[in-house]
């Protein structure tokens, strides 16, 4: 249960003279919901991209699901799911076709895809929309489908980059229910968000600013340590200094 699935040590990324991520060191445990917070431009997306093998770090060390980010990015990719900031399902395919496509490229068998899709349709109550094109769906449904696609192949870790942007409070609530459910089946959740109430739902959070982690720990502990009442105050305390 206490197995470490993500570990970074002094992970750094420079773009020319600009250091986007500086000496990032943290650990994420199996089955944990890890909130990765920070203002826009704090370096969250760059950090995620290094962890999922889209971007090569400049220096430092990191393993994801036990694989080295420098040497084994393709092995990492087999063991993770990813839901990007930018909506990334195929809008001209239906819900089922998207599931089939992504299931297929993760190596799921055609039978397994059919069974899992049927289960998912049943569970999320999307019988009416399963055969609709993604572009015909409201944004709330799209985000739920995108999450389902990201965890469809039962990855060890799923990375969610601002998954609830632009979504109404009800759908956000349902979305977090889905996250909890995935977490219960020992999928580790690595999530970035701007909604600070969501940060409270996480087991542990880190707050990034100017490329480094300024705070790391359990939400209630952090509030106590920084002597603030809410996550909002904590976030302002850390992220507003530079202005």
């Amino acid at each position: 249960m206490d197995k470490i699935v993500i570990k970074t040590e002094n992970l750094t990324k420079r773009f020319g003279a600009f250091t986007a991520v500086k000496d990032l060191s943290f650990e994420v445990h199996r089955g944990e919901i890890f909130g990765f917070l920070g203002a826009n431009g704090a370096g969250k997306t760059t950090a995620i991209r290094m962890l999922i093998g889209l971007l090569r770090p400049t220096s430092g060390f990191a393993t994801v699901a036990g694989f080295d980010v420098y040497k084994e990015p393709e092995k990492i990719k087999k063991n993770i799911g990813y839901m990007s900031q930018k909506f990334s399902l195929y809008e001209d395919l239906t819900v089922l076709e998207n599931l089939k496509f992504f299931g297929g490229i993760y190596g799921l068998k055609s039978e397994a895809i059919k069974i899992k899709s049927a289960e998912l349709v049943e569970k999320l109550g999307m019988k009416n929309i399963a055969k609709k094109l993604i572009k015909e769906l409201p944004i709330g449904w799209r985000q739920k489908v995108a999450f389902s696609v990201a965890v469809f192949h039962n990855p060890a870790i799923v990375f969610l980059d601002e998954p609830t942007g632009g979504v109404d409070p009800i759908v956000r609530r349902q979305f977090w229910d889905m996250i909890y459910e995935a977490s219960e089946s020992y999928i580790t959740i690595f999530v970035t968000t701007h909604y600070l109430d969501e940060a409270e739902y996480c087991n542990r959070i880190s707050i990034m600013d100017e490329g480094t982690i300024k705070a790391l720990g359990n939400p209630s502990e952090l509030k106590k340590n920084f002597n603030v009442d809410s996550m909002n105050d904590l976030f302002y305390l850390i992220a507003r200094k530079k202005i």
């Binding site: 889209l54 990719k77 087999k78 993770i80 990813y82 990007s84 930018k86 990334s88 399902l89 195929y90």
Partner: peptide
Amino acid sequence: ELGTIEQINVTPI
């Protein structure tokens, strides 16, 4: 442009 390539690039394809 759509960003779907990023999704493809994090798969083991």
